[in-house]
Design a protein around this nucleic acid. Sequence first.
DNA 1: CTTGACCCCGTACCATGGTACGGATGTTAT
DNA 2: ATAACATCCGTACCATGGTACGGGGTCAAG
Lengths: 134, 134
Amino acid sequence: MTTIAGLARAGGVGVETVRYYQRRGLLETPDKPGGGGVSGGIRRYGKTAIRRLRFIRSAQAAGFTLDQIAELLDLDASEDRLRVRALARERIAALDAKIADLVAARTALKHLAVECQASPTGPCPIIAAFERGT
Amino acid sequence: MTTIAGLARAGGVGVETVRYYQRRGLLETPDKPGGGGVSGGIRRYGKTAIRRLRFIRSAQAAGFTLDQIAELLDLDASEDRLRVRALARERIAALDAKIADLVAARTALKHLAVECQASPTGPCPIIAAFERGT
DNA sequence: CTTGACCCCGTACCATGGTACGGATGTTAT
DNA sequence: ATAACATCCGTACCATGGTACGGGGTCAAG
């Protein structure tokens, strides 16, 4: 049981980020303590919260948006594995597309950089390629 | 010589995007015509503008930010090829890092998806992996 | 019983790359 | 000359994922 700062530390994020996730509905905001109607002041977070925060971070690392992560968290509760797999497949396809784009860009740029170094006269091939719309 | 709509079409972007690039200083805003002080109304764009717009689009495809593209455009004028190569190398390194991240995410996710399909009992491996922080 | 550190909450702001609105003015076709 | 349409320009808004601010409350140590 820690405070919000401890939770944030456990998840490797800032306190403000935790609060942001709460606003987004990704993390729940626990009730304040004070067993008898006393409006106690400071919320406490347990292992569930930490697990959830880690979930968010690693799903994010897999490229899911916060909206998609919200859905995954719901699916965690509903155990709809088909839908989870569908989301995973979608994400894989998107990652494949993105990777292909980046590899193409990288290859082209690398080629141009080599060319530019090799031929120090005339217009810069990198700039020229961009001007041709390549 | 076309209007802003023609320029936008030539670059495959919307008119508002052209105007946005102008605001960002990436494209110049030509003087309005009207040779004798008459404040003529409609700006005209030539091949230079089209080339510049294409430049922006293709540099963007290589992952440069608009700020970096602004610098590249300046370098185009100054012919500082060393700096251009430096920017290109930076970009290549960033692309490599990004690609590695995405490939790792893709591989992990793919693995989990297969696993999830293979073992339809117990907790969903995809969800479980995220909860472990993988 | 005060000081200092931390928490709470609403609200505002940031970067990035646009997209939309709307009144005024310009241009073109009929 | 008048309707229809495009351009101009300032300004506001959008999504995404945060980050910062400021006034007030709470809590533990000294």
